[in-house]
């Protein structure tokens, strides 16, 4: 079972995660089918910016984060923004959408000028997240755990970050055991997705370069 304190932490994180999301009117724009390459580029850039702003607002709610060294806060966010973005996007592609929406979104991404070698791993990742049928709680916790990775470049106070990350990992571990009693490997699988995210993150800078050139 979750202790009272852990339950409170979980509720708090989930509420913050649900509250801080991309503005709906921007998300709606994505579904308008009329777009040329330039509009597409601008919209995806705007979305990415909004993603980061929302991520920062969510992160400010993580207990203890604001007490970390200010430059460490930036290093953590900078190191995790891309991974958190992929995690959030994965939700869009795995949630049941009204008919045709997923196809429009996928088409928009495929026509964005990003080369196929980067697109394929991205959709493979979305698929592997979809297979886990993650709950909102798992998404919120996994995002918080990703942000609180002590081994990001330029983080000085690694132990302070670890002290914030560990309770999140423990809540996620227990939550998985409660929700998936017949799947003892579920927690390990979730953590495995973090490794996949690292790979996507690693290729992201390369992807940006190729996109800009295109």
């Amino acid at each position: 079972e979750l202790s009272q304190e852990q339950q409170a932490l979980l509720s708090f994180i989930v509420e913050a995660y649900q509250k801080h999301r991309i503005p709906q009117d921007m998300a709606k724009k994505l579904l308008q089918e009329q777009f040329n390459a330039e509009e597409n580029f601008l919209l995806l850039t705007e979305m990415a910016t909004s993603h980061v702003q929302v991520l920062v607002e969510f992160t400010k709610n993580i207990p203890g984060f604001s007490a970390l060294d200010h430059e460490d806060q930036i290093a953590l966010l900078k190191g995790s923004a891309v991974e958190a973005m992929f995690l959030r996007s994965a939700q869009v592609f795995t949630r049941k959408q009204p008919h045709g929406h997923t196809e429009v979104l996928e088409d928009r991404i495929r026509k964005s000028g990003i080369s196929e070698e980067f697109i394929t791993p991205m959709f493979t990742f979305y698929k592997s997240i979809g297979e886990l049928q993650m709950t909102q709680e798992e998404h919120a916790l996994l995002t918080a755990i990703t942000i609180l990775s002590p081994d990001r470049p330029y983080v000085k106070g690694q132990q302070a970050v670890e002290r914030l990350q560990e309770p999140m990992l423990e809540v996620l571990r227990r939550f998985c055991a409660i929700q998936h009693p017949l799947e003892p490997q579920h927690f390990a699988r979730l953590l495995g997705r973090l490794t996949e995210l690292r790979t996507l993150n690693h290729h992201h800078a390369e992807m940006l370069t190729s996109w800009r050139m295109s």
Binding site: V56, E57, Q73
Partner: peptide, 21 residues
């Protein structure tokens, strides 16, 4: 890397609470 300059800027602004900018 240059590709990260924009990102850091957005993060710093958002951390300071200047979301409107």
């Amino acid at each position: 890397p240059a590709s990260n300059l924009g990102l850091e800027d957005i993060i710093r602004k958002a951390l300071m609470g200047n979301l409107e900018e």
